[in-house]
Nucleic acid binder design. Structure first.
Lengths: 350, 350
DNA sequence: TTGCCGGATTGGAACGATCCAAAGGTAGTT
DNA sequence: AACTACCTTTGGATCGTTCCAATCCGGCAA
């Protein structure tokens, strides 16, 4: 009874076949659960698989079948909890469907994005989920990705998007509506001088949120001042630094609609440093509802986007596209929901 | 001049070879930058590669070369910023070296960890970086991973680790020393009744931090009370809920060494809810130095672990192991550094 | 005996790259 | 002319799987 377990080399179908006296093809059928094989044969093969510790080689299988079982996830900023939670949702849903996640981080650099996409494509993903870096351009992405592998744009649009690129699916947040809800909420609380704080105006999501803010202000018949629109990088740190821009001039606002939660939390810090108590002396709202929003001090009024659920949704959309490669492209807009917490106080009673 | 670009099918080496009248082998040499090929031939081939939009098929190449260019990253909790930053560091370093990251999230479930590892292994990663789920057992992991592909344990040990598993490399944080530093710092500030708050005592990192705390207390000749050791899940939410455990009995502590930053931030919230001001009425320290620690209110005294740098380091360690598969296994302990901020105030002058 | 049927199994050609030994071509030497 | 040396190029086998057409075999009808 020799054991025939190969040493220093992977166990292959041939080893299993030789080990139990059937052909490679039969073992392959067993692996894929084909009903063709005889019960006894199947049992014998399965024992042998266990005995030799066989590991399926998906790369080899995919080579022949010319299908793929991985999906690339390319993110601009994984350190942002919004994207981290999104990634977790994506991985969960993909894993459940038997796909594996190829991760790539671009650090908000369009150049790195090009490189990362190129490198991931060499591994032949079945599809791509991309949250573009700032200034990432549609024709650049098209040049490296091509038309063969389906792409889902998440969260942001690409620069220079033209009708010819409409073949890409999109999953976006309802930015404009969300920002309008936040602004209307502050107005309902009695605020009149409301700022829009943070983000870069050349990102599509920021433009949309700004539009929602302006729309609500206009509808309510409220004036807006140019210096109430403060740009900054969408990070806590930069937001804290830029806080002073709100208070350096006449006609100081009593509230701010922030680009996202990170910015709002940074603004809170900046307010504290100026001796202002957020949620008492100054009202503010965020966007995203990351986990820390509820636990801030004070808890942050924000727009819930359910990032992990969005991740699962993104995964579903891509897999759906794989089923129907030729169907018309889908533009999905995920709803957002206002979550009122303590940061959106009424204005101080002068 | 017909163009010969295949439609509806991937471009392969054969297409390029046929397109410019050389053999498949020559094209392959060009792709790998071999010095053997003639300059003119190389130029001709490179033009054709661009013209047909060739994408390298790494899976096919790896099949023949029996090497791999991906590395699996398996994490217990990506939503925790500590791991998200770690992941970014890993991906950055791997990407720079031409590897691609296969992501897997286990959500702190040992069962999912088994499944995820199994699925990732089918894609033939060259190595694995694993931050184990709670209660993940060494022999289970060994059963699915085998001895063929090198594994780096990060952050936690596995349950039931025996000498025979010593072949796995490890990258751990200097938990005991770090907790001792934090405790000594609080003692130096004048505290005598110091609690150890958060974490589960059956996780190795928690045990080590607890040991550092006890060591510092003992060395300083300070007594510890059993009810000063409060267990909770390492999340903000659970920490906030368990806050009362510190105050329900006699001999209330004036400070707490927290298991990690998430727990510390949760405890801050809990304190606030009781009307206590963290950093004024009660001192506390964290562990990890996640981005939000510096921006908390008050800013959190903590131990800097530089998660992104740890990620890069983990990637380096795995790649180093790939170079020298037979070298003795490495146990690396990354130093941590006390960062003093405002949360570690002196005790209130009773 | 022959033919046929259905279930179970199989050999060999793919998939897209790499490796290797061998060959083609040019130039220089004897 | 024959030989060597060097620089390029090449065909065919190979990696581990899947696909397909072909085969095998026991039984049953003609």
């Amino acid at each position: 009874m020799s054991s025939h377990i190969p040493i220093g080399r992977k166990v292959t179908l041939n080893d299993i076949a030789a080990g139990c006296g059937v052909s490679r093809a039969t073992v392959s059928l067993v692996l894929r659960g084909s009903p063709l094989v005889n019960k006894l044969t199947r049992a014998r093969v399965e024992d042998e698989l266990r005995r030799q510790g066989y590991v399926y080689n998906r790369a080899a299988a995919n080579l022949r079948r010319s299908t793929s079982s991985s999906i690339a996830l390319v993110l601009n900023d994984l350190a942002n909890p919004f994207f981290a939670e999104f990634a977790e949702g994506v991985d969960e849903a993909l894993g459940a469907a038997g796909f594996v996640t190829l991760l790539g981080c671009t650090g908000e650099s369009a150049a790195r994005e090009q490189a990362v996409l190129g490198s991931l494509l060499e591994h032949g993903p079945a599809g791509i989920i991309l949250s573009p870096a700032e200034h990432s351009e549609a024709h650049q992405v098209l040049a490296v990705v091509g038309r063969r592998v389906p792409l889902l744009l998440f969260n942001r649009e690409l620069d220079g998007t033209l009708p010819e690129f409409a073949h890409w699916d999109q999953l976006m947040l309802d930015n404009q509506h969300g920002a309008r809800l936040a602004t209307e909420h502050l107005i309902a609380r009695g605020h009149q001088r409301i700022a829009f704080f943070g983000g870069h105006h050349d990102s599509s999501s920021c433009r949309q949120r700004l539009a929602g803010y302006l729309e609500a202000m206009r509808t309510a018949g409220l004036r807006t001042e140019p210096h109430w629109q403060v740009e900054c990088a969408p990070t806590r740190l930069d937001a804290a630094h830029r806080t002073s821009a709100l208070f350096d001039t006449m006609n100081v606002p009593t509230a701010a609609v922030c680009y996202n939660d990170a910015v709002a939390l940074g603004l809170m810090l900046g307010l504290n440093q100026r001796g202002l108590r957020p949620g008492q002396d100054f009202a503010l709202t965020g966007f995203d509802d990351i986990a820390e929003a509820a636990l801030g001090m004070p808890p942050l009024t924000t727009l819930s986007t359910a990032p992990q659920e969005r991740g699962r949704q993104a995964a579903q959309l891509v897999m759906q596209r794989l089923q129907q490669p030729l169907a018309a492209s889908q533009q999905t807009i995920a709803p957002v929901q206002l979550v009122v917490r303590e940061s959106s106080c009424p204005p101080p009673a002068n």
